[in-house]
Nucleic acid binder design. Structure first.
Length: 153
DNA sequence: GCCAACGTTGGC
DNA sequence: GCCAACGTTGGC
């Protein structure tokens, strides 16, 4: 089982949006970076757990946790010419972008701001915290997961 | 295949 | 709104 951190801008799709979806489940769309795409397509498995990270928020930080409840399938927004995620080079036979389904597990009572993550010595190796990191999906180690779960209490 | 120009991300 | 970092595009 793997752990992940997934970024989304709460103005567009935040943890409150996921909470209101039927079965608190939705597909995680709009990933348009090949590295992140490959992790979605090849590495994310049903049962994996993920942090829901609010980027471009005030303050940015981790809002809760999700479970991966369906493995990769083609991102429907790539075929929708009205979507901002439309990709004219993608076809149904040869899709370029993928989604997984995520289900809300818990919204943290205590939101963990980025600043707190940076201040935690045990998290110094986290990919999220690396300078210049822009990847919207990053792996998290079990040790990092446990530390952050402890901080959420 | 190089690389300059350009676009995007995301913290501040 | 600024800007550093970095991915993508396209001319050559």
């Amino acid at each position: 089982m793997n752990y992940w951190l997934m970024k989304s801008e709460p103005e567009t799709f935040g943890i409150e949006h996921l909470a209101k979806c039927p079965k608190q489940t939705h597909y995680w769309d709009g990933v348009r970076n090949y590295q992140a795409r490959n992790m979605i397509r090849d590495d994310m498995k049903v049962g994996d757990m993920a942090f829901f990270y609010h980027s471009n928020a005030t303050p940015p930080g981790i809002a809760g946790i999700m479970r991966i409840t369906r493995a990769a399938y083609p991102d429907p927004t790539q075929f929708d010419s009205h979507s901002k995620y439309y990709d004219p080079k993608a076809t149904e036979d040869n899709p370029r972008w993928f989604v997984v389904d995520v289900t809300l597990v818990e919204k943290f009572k205590h939101y963990i701001p980025l600043e707190e993550l940076r201040a935690e010595p045990g998290l110094s190796g986290m990919q999220l915290l690396r300078r210049g990191n822009r990847l919207s999906i990053t792996p998290v180690t079990e040790e990092q997961w446990d530390i952050i779960m402890g901080m959420a209490k």
